[in-house]
Each structure stands twice: as C-alpha cells, then as structure tokens.
Design a protein around this nucleic acid. Structure first.
Lengths: 386, 386
DNA sequence: AGATCGACGTCAAACGTTTGCCAAGCACCG
DNA sequence: CGGTGCTTGGCAAACGTTTGACGTCGATCT
C-alpha cells in the first residue's frame, strides 16, 4: 500500500453539504459524535483510514475494535486505536462485516397492517428484545396482500437477514413461508399461526379467548348468539371462532350462522357484517361476539344508526382491547391481549433460533384476559330461564 | 472450495424444523418460488453456483441478471442463465452488491412513536413511494428518547443506508442530525422540522393549521381561549401554537397562558394539562385548542369527569384527525392532516436526494383542513358581543 | 544458552458482487 | 484479404471486513 495519493494534506473540507444550503448557521461544527472527517478519499471512513492514521495495520484496527478479539491486541495500542477511530468518526461497515461473517444483525419483521393499533406494542416488544442482542428489525407491512408478502420476503432474503418474524401470515401462505424455511432462514410466526407448516410460533391463546367471550355472554343469560367473524384464513380468527362456537353449543345455547366473514379485520367490514345481521330481522340474536375490536366498533356504529341500543337491545364483545375502546359509547367489553409481551417473547425466540438454527424454539401461547365493560349486559327478556 | 462435506446426500430434512413438529403435512414441497436447492455447499446460492450450473463465467451471470447490463450478454445465454438462476432459487446478495456499488437500496426511517395512529399512514406513503424505486425502508422508533435516537442513527449509519428520513426530530436534536448530514448521507425531515439545520423537510403547514383552529373558535364567538400545548421542543407544536396565539391576539381576544406544556403528545399528558386548566377556576376559558388529538382526548375525559359538558361548557379543538376521533363523545372538531400524502412526498424527496446528493430537494409543506364536529359550539354566554 | 512460550502485529485470503478491460469470434467493408 | 467494428464472454481487481496463519520480539524456564 503506502502509495496512495495525498494524506492529511488539503483543506479540512467539511464533508457534506456543499450544494446550496439555505440557512447559514452551521450550528455546532463538532457534534457530540466527533468530527467524522479526515479520510483521504470521499465516502465513509474505513478501517484502512483509521489504520493509516493510527500507524498500525488495518487488521489490528479490526481486532482492537472488536470486543471479542480485543485481547489479541495490546492495551495501549487498543486505546490508541479506539481514540483515533472515535476521532475520525469511524463506523464499521456492517454490510462488509456481514459478507465475511454471514450475519447481518438484522431481522425481517413482516406485519399485515401498521395502522392496526394492536401491532405497535408488538413491534415495540420485538424491537426492544432484539436490540438487547444487537439486532435490528427491518419492518414492513403487507396489507394482507399475498403478492406483497412475496415481494417483501424477497427483499429480506436479498438482504440476508438473520431471521424473519412474520405476523402477517394467512393460512394460504404456507408454501411461500416454507420456501423461506427451506433457505434455512429461521422463521418465526407471531400472533398469527399457520399450523400446517409446523413453524415455531408465539400467539395468544385464541382458544381461551373465544371461550372467555362465550362464557361471559352465556353467564349473562344470553341464549341466542352470533359471531361477526374476521377473515377465516387467519388462524387467530378461526381459532377464537371455533372455541366460541364450541362453548356456546356445549351450553345448549344457539349460535346463528351469519354465513359470511369479514374480508379484512376492519371497521368497514364490521359495518357490513352488522348490516347483514340486522337483515335477519326477528331472528336477531341478543349478543354478538365480534372477532376483533375494529369489527366491533363498526358494528356498534351500525347498531346505533338503526336505533338499536347497546347493551340494552344487543350485547357486543370485542377482541384485542385496542387503546381507545374503553372510551367509545358504550365502553367495549373485550378480550385483552398483551402485545408488547408477545413481541418480547417472539424476539426472545428469534434470538434463540439464530443462535441454534437447527433447534427451533418451542411455540408459545399467551393467556388473554376478559375486560368487562358496558357493552354487555343480560338480555332484556331472558329467553328460557330454564 | 469443492472439498466440503456431503452434498445432496441424506434425507430431505425439511430445513430448520427437526424438533417436535406437531402436524405432519409438509404441504407443497415445491413452492411457487422454485426449489431453492442445489448449491454444493451450505448457505445460499451464489453467482458462482449458478455459473457452474449454467456453464458460464460468473461475471456473465451477474450481467445476465442485471437489467442494466443485460445487453452485454447474448439473448440465448441470458435466457439460459435466467432459467438456471430461477431454478436454483438464486437471490442476489444485496450486502455484497452494496459493498461494490455503494448502494444498499435501504433507507432509514426514524419515527418517534409507532403507536401514534398518525404515523401509520405516513409510513405507508413512504414505503409505497420507496418501493417504486426499489428501495426499502428500515423503520425504527425512538420513543422520543435522544439516547435512543443516537443509537438508532448509529445503526443506520453502520448499515450504510442510502438516506435517512427522520420524523422523530426534536429541536434539540440539531447537532446529532448535522453529524449525519456531515457524513454525506442524505437526510430528510418528515412532519417535524428543525429549522436551524437547514435540512430539507416535508411538513404540514402548522402555521395554517393553528390559524384555522383559532379562526374557527373566534368565529364561534369565543373570546377567552387557551391552548393545551404539546412538547415545545417539537417544531410542529411550536408553530401551530404560535399561529394560534397570533390569530387570537390579532382578533383582540384573550389567551390564557397555562404556563406548562405536555412532555409527550399523549392522552395522559392531556389529562394533566386539563386538570391544570380546571385548577384556574373562575378564570377558565370557554374554548381550548389541544395541540393534538391525544391531548384533546385526555382533556375531554377530565372535563367529563369534572362535570363539564363539551361543547356546552367548553369547546375543544384537536389536531391530526386520528382514525377514531369522530366516534368519541362528543365527536372531535380537529385539524386533518394527510399522512399518506406526506409520506409519499417525503419518499419522493428521498429518491431525488439519493439521485443527486449535492442538490438537496426543496422543503415542502402540505395544507391542513379543519374538520368541524360536535366538540365546538358558541360559548353559552357570549362575552362582549361587541 | 538454547528452547519454549506468550504477547502483539502483519499478511493475505476469503466473503459475493460489479465492472473495466481484454481477447476471441464474426461480419462487413473497401 | 486486411482492417474495422461489433458482440460476446472471461479475467481479475476492487469494495470493507474478518481471521487463520505466520512472524518477531522479549521474557521465562530448564
């Protein structure tokens, strides 16, 4: 080497912002993070640059800066190198590092809908847990579009993420998920399961949740019930629906089959289903279980518009306990999930899966909890008090 | 290489799921994305592997697969190579590619709080626009913690993102932001501005928004007003607050100075400010401008709890028009922003900034719009009808 | 004193791509 | 038939790291 052009010659150069920058104030020329200057080429500072400046070989710099290898280099040298590196604002190039080490310290996180309030705590839990292990989530949403899921998976594969967490899985996505698993990329399912794949998952106990909802309504005395179902290609909805039905039937009460389900777990679809329900006329149940809060909110709205009072005329149970549902009218009885905890756990599982890819972590379920509020009450005229 | 252990010997192995797998069905052995097999080593398929299988040099494969270079290779060869690559499930290693090309096709996106409903559409807008240009957002939240912001910025720098979009900027973050800019990483501010830095930004017109809110209340006849301020180190709140005050004063009405501001733009802080306001007793204004909807919701709750009726006793204007605020009681009058549009625009700016890093794109502002609902009404006893 | 050892550094070969350059082959033209 | 130009494909040098395999140098042991 040695024969590179000039060294620390030339003007300091204030790397960055040469082109028209409107306001003058450069404000704090030396930020807290150091000058970040002094490479003899443009582009970021490299190991070479630091090595030259510190007067050692670049492999020494690499070792000095890697805690795991730091004992391979003398104490004073290490301190010196560290000082120089900090001074120059060196940041290691994780892409290059990953090329060599085969680890990108990045985990793909794929969710269905960032706008669903339920997802934020989950992401927070994941991010916090991953950060503890030096990993960073690469989050994307699919909007429940299979084509988009495929594209996103492609992106994360190209980026060679260390693992993928999918919380956007629909039952039909099994093949494409298995394709990822076949690439030996650890794949974890969060919140939504796809049992046929046998992939490790961390979900809420939808079975328990559905049972909870049913039992509550039965205990109140309801004998005519119905469900406003979420998309039936999502395990969570199927499971909680099945548990609800099972419990209702076992109690000898009757469940009206609406014959349709929401295409997306959204307010709008909740409205549609509610209208469908009202169309049943005299057949109408005294209580409904909306398979998630958004559907419940949509339904409440339709009920109110058609003069039906909740809970006097009809009781409504939701699912998820979204942030504001205790503030709508009437405050919604719902099943509470602990999103952040779930995120944290799946983060934990991910770390484990990366550490030993051949031994996938066991699946987990979290218990839900019923939040009783004002949207449920005994039926006005208790049918068949038995 | 060559002398690695076994090849395609051994059982199929169902990659990554040896441990207890409950359901049997392997489901669709060949997914739509191809077999993804047949490298003579473990780990992902490389150019070398494809080249060997196709009987050409790996540089030829590289070219055949790059649309921009594809004309450098003969038609039949290209088709053959493409077929083999698809067959083998080859995915290019973006890390390695980025090392050579200096482009990661990744953009860091930093937001304050993923749980804030306002942010989801913004992220959607950004993601959609970026995807059109083959970029992928790397999204993280800082929870408005400066230390966390620093960590996150460090992460994205280490990953050599092509640009960074910061929507979590507080005014005090100027130095650390400039540190990024000094590294010649294009940096765009979304929603929140930091004027001192002169960085390009895309924000809502908070000046217009604050004016809109003030004018509405003044037009209703209110003469005694107050603001429930958001964090005063965030440009958006400062700006809309200033505009509000200016308009109120110009109209000769009086604004009560609460002497405090929310530490975070959250429901809880809204409650605190509302209690502070009530403590003023007989001094109480007839209308308040909450600088965002969460604060407004918190305040509404406190008002209701203390027997104050809205809008009869006190009018409330919010800001953001969050998804559910038309469904609380009373439906909230608020200023609507178009988050997705903002996201899209900042995505656009980002693409431009990456294309020509020396010519930062001009800043933009989007006009807000007042949504009048039931939380505002004329004061019960119009003071000084003039 | 010679062998051995530990500590500290350097060398150089990867990792998977991209790409400037060269060479071979071919067609075409004068 | 020689020259020119075009097409196609191979070669090899990067990009910034990591890391196994040496060296070198003192110090310690026998």
């Amino acid at each position: 080497m040695g024969a590179r052009s000039g060294r620390r010659a030339g003007a300091p150069r204030r790397a960055g912002m040469d082109g028209a920058v409107p306001p003058p104030a450069p404000a704090a020329p030396d930020g807290p993070a150091g000058p970040a200057a002094a490479a003899d080429h443009d582009g970021p500072v490299t190991l070479q640059d630091v090595a030259r400046a510190a007067g050692v070989h670049y492999s020494t710099v690499s070792r000095a800066l890697d805690p795991a290898q730091a004992r391979r280099v003398g104490g004073t040298t290490r301190l010196h190198v560290e000082a120089v590196a900090r001074e120059m604002g060196y940041r290691r190039h994780l892409g290059a590092s990953g090329l060599k080490r085969g680890r990108t310290h990045t985990v793909g996180v794929i969710v269905a809908d960032l706008g669903n309030p339920f997802i934020a705590p989950v992401l927070r839990g994941i991010a916090n847990r991953l950060e503890e292990s030096g990993l960073m989530p690469l989050t994307t949403e699919t909007q429940d579009d299979p084509a988009r899921l495929a594209r996103v998976l492609n992106h994360v594969v190209e980026r060679r993420v260390d693992a993928v967490i999918v919380s956007a899985a629909r039952l039909g996505n099994a093949p494409i998920l298995l394709d990822i698993a076949r690439r030996r990329i650890p794949l974890l399912l969060a919140d939504r399961n796809v049992p046929q794949t046998g992939l490790p998952s961390c979900t809420h106990d939808n079975d328990a949740g559905g049972t909870l909802a049913a039992r509550h309504l039965l205990d109140l005395g309801h004998r005519h019930l119905a469900q406003l179902r979420g998309p039936q290609d999502v395990s969570s909805f199927v499971d909680r629906g099945a548990a609800f039905s099972r419990t209702v039937t076992a109690a000898g009460a009757v469940e009206l089959d609406l014959g349709d389900a929401a295409r997306t777990p959204s307010l709008r679809e909740g409205q549609r289903l509610a209208r469908l329900l009202l169309a049943r006329g005299r057949d109408r149940p005294t209580a409904v279980f909306a398979q998630n809060d958004l559907i419940a909110l949509g339904a409440l709205e339709v009920f109110a518009d058609s003069g039906l009072r909740c809970p006097a005329d009809i009781s409504v149970v939701g699912y998820d306990d979204l942030p504001q549902v205790d503030r709508v009218t009437p405050p919604l009885t719902t099943v509470r999930l602990h999103g952040e905890e779930l995120g944290r756990l799946v983060g934990e599982m991910t770390v484990a899966a990366i550490a030993s890819p051949d031994r996938p972590p066991p699946s987990l379920t979290l218990p839900p909890r019923l939040m009783v509020r004002a949207s449920t009450a005994p039926p006005r005229v208790p049918q068949e008090p038995t």
